[in-house]
């Protein structure tokens, strides 16, 4: 698939000298959902703001469907919708008017049927004549999304769409993103909820200190870096791993009541059968056995702390 968004050697240094983005390169395919993960201050918002035209790049280039964001900004920006992190809306305006405004601002003529469809899809139709200040926080977020989609963009940026949002609304957001994918909209979302990236993204990019550490297919990433753990709970307490079991990658946990065995899910042989046999030989009584797979969160934490792991 062709890249709809192409970022080349993008650098952004603020007036104070702080380098928010250092040589960022990223290609995003049409129709995919990509999650940019990173701690606070990693440069996620700066990246989005630069692509959308809110901040000016120091150097490098960005194209949207082949249109440069600086020299051909009209075409480029028409294709982009942005849902900002902070709720910023005209408090006294009606929902429908603010959505119409966004549509017009992005150069699309008034089309009531399109606005009606959009508001219905976002469950805002009942509230169309309410003033924005009367809406709940969740509803306001929906209005922000409606505004971003009002001009039928092909690329949607969601900057931390579910920060401070309750579980139910978060699930709703994910559904909305899923619907958009069905319409062929490319979605780029930033988040520091790993759960979110895990739930909806096709690809995951990890950004830290202004650099993209890694961009990979979510499943590949999980598989490549995913380790599995087998926790063997014992009836007796051990002081140390018995010598007979020294050949295994074992650690003691829970004050010696649990043996923790780490293994690679992708390996031909996991060694579990042999371990369990050897445990029996060593005369250890098993109380329970649990397996755990490392989540994207574990991967993320290890990446941010040891960037070389990404190589």
């Amino acid at each position: 698939m062709a890249a709809i968004l192409s970022i080349r050697n993008l650098r952004k240094a603020y007036a104070g000298g702080f380098e928010a983005l250092k040589d960022v390169n990223l290609d995003i395919d049409e129709g995919e959902i990509i999650a940019l993960l990173g701690p606070n201050g990693a440069g996620k918002t700066t990246l989005i703001s630069t692509v959308c035209g809110i901040t000016m790049p120091t150097s490098g280039s960005v194209t949207v469907a082949g249109h440069d964001i600086l020299t051909d900004y009209r075409q480029a920006r028409r294709l982009i919708g942005l849902v900002p992190q902070e709720i910023a809306l005209e408090p006294f305006e009606k929902v429908i008017n603010t959505v119409r405004f966004s549509r017009g601002l992005f150069g699309k003529g008034r089309k009531d049927s399109a606005v009606e469809d959009l508001l219905k899809r976002l469950s805002l139709w009942d509230k169309k004549d309410s003033q924005i200040r009367e809406l709940s926080g969740g509803m306001k977020r929906r209005v922000l999304i409606a505004k971003a989609l009002a001009h039928e963009p092909r690329v949607l940026f969601l900057d931390e769409p579910t920060a401070g949002v309750d579980v139910e609304l978060r699930k709703d957001m994910w559904e909305i993103v899923e619907q958009l994918r069905a319409d062929g909209v490319t979605t780029i979302l930033t988040t520091h909820y790993i759960e979110e990236a895990e739930a909806i993204a096709d690809r995951v990019g990890v950004i830290s200190k202004g650099e993209i550490l890694l961009v990979e297919d979510k499943d590949t990433l999980m598989a490549r870096m995913g380790k599995k753990q087998l926790d063997v709970q014992l009836t007796t307490q051990l002081d140390a791993v018995p010598d007979v079991l020294a050949g295994y990658d074992l650690a003691l946990g829970d004050e010696g009541r649990t043996l923790i065995y780490s293994y690679d899910v992708n390996a031909e042989r996991t060694g579990i059968t042999k371990l369990l046999t050897d445990l029996q030989k060593a005369g250890l009584q098993l109380k329970d056995v649990v397996t755990r797979q490392s989540s994207l969160e574990d991967i993320f934490v290890s990446l941010v702390h040891e960037p070389e792991a990404a190589q």
């Binding site: 028409r78 910023a88 005209e90 966004s102």
Partner: peptide, 17 residues
């Protein structure tokens, strides 16, 4: 000033205008 104050200026800056 009001869009600057409440933050809605982002929309103007990101619009094809």
């Amino acid at each position: 000033y009001f869009p600057k104050f409440i933050g809605t200026i982002y929309e103007l800056l990101s619009a094809p205008v």
